[in-house]
């Protein structure tokens, strides 16, 4: 499964469970949708352990975590690094 799909599934099935008919667009602001400090931590653990991509702590910013689009871009860049 591609990164985007895995991320969306983890976000909207586990971290911010949302009825399938109401899954937000990939540009939606995840912090507004309820991604709080606990869930940010869980998201990072998911990316590192399940997607196998190491995300440097100093790069974790609201901009990079703010939407599915931003996350995918950041994860892809980190995977290449």
């Amino acid at each position: 499964m591609e990164t985007r799909q895995q991320l969306r599934q983890h976000l909207f099935e586990t971290l911010i469970p949302t009825p399938a008919s109401a899954w937000p667009a990939d540009g939606a602001d995840l912090l507004e949708l309820g991604l709080d400090s606990l869930r940010v931590m869980q998201l990072l653990v998911f990316v590192e352990e399940r997607l196998g991509v190491n995300l440097p702590d100093h790069e974790v910013t609201p901009e990079r975590i703010g939407s599915v689009n931003a996350l995918v871009e950041w994860i892809d860049a980190s995977a290449r690094a």
Partner: peptide
């Protein structure tokens, strides 16, 4: 019932610290 429905219900009424983490 489905968990996303319940999660939405909670999000509409409870602060984020009170939202269930596991269902």
């Amino acid at each position: 019932i489905q968990e996303p429905e319940l999660a939405s219900l909670c999000r509409n009424e409870l602060p984020s610290c009170m939202l269930p983490d596991e269902w």
